[in-house]
């Protein structure tokens, strides 16, 4: 029988420094074995366990889009022992991944509908996956509006792509930073405030992903604007370990984030104790 606990080998193709502190790095991986690539079928919003043998593994949302064939992208913030080791990696190194794990953003529901995507900080990874996926199948979706906040301009990730998206007419981008910064001519203010002010149409679907504090203050704003709980989706994170609902680490109420989530609607979350 297959064994979900065994990592599949991946080659590290490219490392991109995302911020001046070098605490955020994006890792582009390719499959070592063709048959692993063929079996690996995922959707935006899913996550993987990223392994370095001998050092352990940690869960990360997949930042690449399924439409980017042969590529798996992860942005990793250097925070703990495993992420430290990931930052030490060199291009050409072999690492392991397990996945795809968990559920995904409600793509079926978004088809033909307007979508608002709200993100903060480096939690923009799976949102990038969703946006790239939508742009690669552009005619199948309605209006796409993105609100993305970071501490300062340097801390946006995927800066080159943000520029490309800004130049496009088929996606609206609202970039905001926490406080004034020399040369910044876009929005200033926290994500919840910006969300309130940009004039969103509450008939759209919303996907929110960011630090817990941002999610906590953004959700009430969305409700105030008039978005229904069943149309607001967010992605949660805990220390997922096994990834298949056994090890007990990522429990929230009777759910496990690794199999029932990480994506939940606000309607679902309101029924789960411990979700915020």
């Amino acid at each position: 029988m297959s064994n979900t606990y065994i990592p599949i080998p991946m080659k590290l193709e490219r490392i991109i420094n995302e911020d001046p502190d070098r605490t955020l790095r994006t890792f582009d991986l390719s499959f070592v074995n063709k048959q692993d690539e063929e079996k690996f079928s995922y959707m935006p919003g899913q996550f993987c366990e990223f392994s370095i043998l001998g050092k352990g593994e940690s869960p990360f949302g997949i930042a690449s889009s399924p439409s980017e064939k042969g590529l798996l992208k992860f942005t990793v913030s250097r925070t703990g022992s495993v992420t430290q080791e990931i930052h030490y990696l060199q291009e050409g190194d072999i690492v392991g991944i397990r996945g795809p794990l968990g559920n995904w953003y409600p793509d079926e529901k978004l088809r033909g509908k307007d979508t608002v995507i709200i993100g903060g900080g480096f939690a923009f990874t799976t949102l990038r996956s969703m946006i790239v996926y939508m742009l690669d199948h552009r005619q199948e979706y309605g209006k796409i509006t993105v609100i993305y906040g970071a501490r300062s301009p340097e801390f946006f990730i995927f800066k080159d792509e943000l520029k490309e998206w800004e130049a496009r007419a088929d996606i609206t981008l609202h970039l905001t930073i926490d406080k004034p910064y020399p040369g910044w001519d876009k929005l200033i203010g926290f994500v919840p405030t910006v969300t309130k002010e940009v004039g969103l149409d509450p008939s759209a679907y919303v996907i929110v992903c960011g630090p817990p504090i941002m999610i906590k203050y953004t959700l009430p704003v969305l409700s105030e604007i008039g978005f229904e709980d069943s149309k607001i989706f967010t992605s949660l994170e805990r220390r997922m370990k096994c990834g298949i609902g056994k090890c007990g680490r990522c429990g929230i109420g009777s759910k496990y984030i690794c199999i029932d989530g990480p994506v939940f609607s606000l309607e679902e979350l309101k029924k789960i104790p411990e979700s915020f």
Binding site: Y5, G54, G248
Partner: peptide, 16 residues
Amino acid sequence: HCFDMRDEGNEDKGKR
């Protein structure tokens, strides 16, 4: 039934 998964070893050889 909660459990942890840990690596023992170095980059050349070891076990999970």
